[in-house]
Amino acid sequence: MTGTGTVSRRGIVTGAAALLATPRASRASPFEEALKAFAGEAVPRAGRVSIDVPPISESGNSVPITILVESPMTATDHVKTIVVLAEKNPHPQIARFHLSPRAGKAQVSTTIRLATSQRVTVLAGMSDGSVWSGEKDVVVTLSACVDGG
């Protein structure tokens, strides 16, 4: 599990947080809409979300991803939902996870499709209404030998 260092964490407050904080004149992209749909009125804060995903993936067909959110997972303080977003996918919302304190820890894994090299954004919604975010860039490389020749 790779955590985000505090320095880069502050540096990355851009992404999810900035998108929602800044009013936009133009129409929201599907990615922005998915962000908004998840965060609602909350402004996502960078941190508490660790994303373990290979920085270079040999295939966009199946990229393993594990998400760990810092949380005691008690009745009064736990992660309720986690969403995985990929900005450049035709459908940016890849998956949404619903957790309860019975999970013991907020760790989930799955395998995702990435249409191209891009940033993967993960938001976690907490029981206190706060939303936290993390991001990782993934480079999808091209294979030389494909069935299409």
Partner: peptide
């Protein structure tokens, strides 16, 4: 991964 499935050696050779 390209196939999203299990395939035979001959399927692979056809791609070669």
């Amino acid at each position: 991964l390209e196939w999203n499935a299990v395939g035979s050696l001959h399927r692979r050779l056809r791609a070669c």
